[in-house]
Design a protein around this nucleic acid. Structure first.
Lengths: 132, 132
DNA sequence: CCCGCTCTTGACGTTAACGTCAACGTCAAC
DNA sequence: GTTGACGTTGACGTTAACGTCAAGAGCGGG
């Protein structure tokens, strides 16, 4: 009779996530310690929802971009602030602008590096050809 | 009579660069220690050429992208390997491919984050409007 | 000559982001 | 009941990327 008979939300253990995302459990607990995750508990064991898993993926993306954990936390918090905290909205818009500026700078850096690599590679290949 | 009477290459002191690029001299020396720079010496003092300055800027770009110093060094070395080290050329092409892959991943991460921020911001502004 | 300034090296401290290790809880299986 | 497998907390170790501090070299001015 349960209205949600079949669509039970999948849950993950800490080792599930560690294996899937190629992390150690120690690292995942550390992220929790730093406020990046707040999994539920069954007894004293951690239980991760699909949303928790998404958050963790966001953390990894932040890491790939070289962001410090504190910044990543701020960035992630943008995704799930309870709609309606009227006064917080402009604060949030500011943070978004901040993050966006950083991202734009990074993208610019990347574009530059990529085009430079194209040049270098071209010269490299020319050298290879010329020396036959 | 000097053929290069007027086009003397400008040189910089370590504090010049520190001020211009907003670093401490300690940091610049540290980068040298890690093999990222090799300035000339006048006596025992460091003298930076325009090329050294460019290298240092490349280091900063690497830092903005969150790369570790060792990776940055490898990346920079791509810019000034003595043309012709025949056997090294393919090694170099490999490293370029490596770096490029990382950059492309980072760019993808950035594009995703940016578009997500657009969404969040839109919802934010909608909220602001609705609450009048 | 001495002063003050800039620069140098070297030793040690610090912070972030984990890894490692020890000691213990829990629960299903035998 | 005990034996693993899995999970927990807490203490301590480690590495990268610097900062801080001490002691001294070199040099132009008065």
């Amino acid at each position: 009779m349960s209205a949600k008979a079949d669509d039970v939300e999948p849950v993950f253990s800490i080792t599930d996530l560690a294996q899937e995302l190629d992390l150690t459990t120690r690292t995942i607990r550390f992220y929790e310690d730093r406020g990046l995750l707040r999994p539920a508990r069954r007894g004293q064991q951690r239980v991760y929802s699909r949303a928790d898993r998404t958050r963790l993926k966001l953390v990894l993306r932040g890491k790939r971009l070289g962001w410090p954990l504190d910044d990543i936390r701020e960035m992630i918090e943008l995704y799930d602030t309870p709609d309606g905290e009227r006064k917080q909205l402009t604060v949030m818009l500011n943070k978004i602008a901040q993050s966006r500026a950083t991202l734009l700078q990074q993208r610019e850096d990347i574009e530059l590096a990529l085009s430079e690599f194209d040049d270098i590679e071209a010269r490299c290949k020319a050298q290879l050809d010329s020396t036959h």
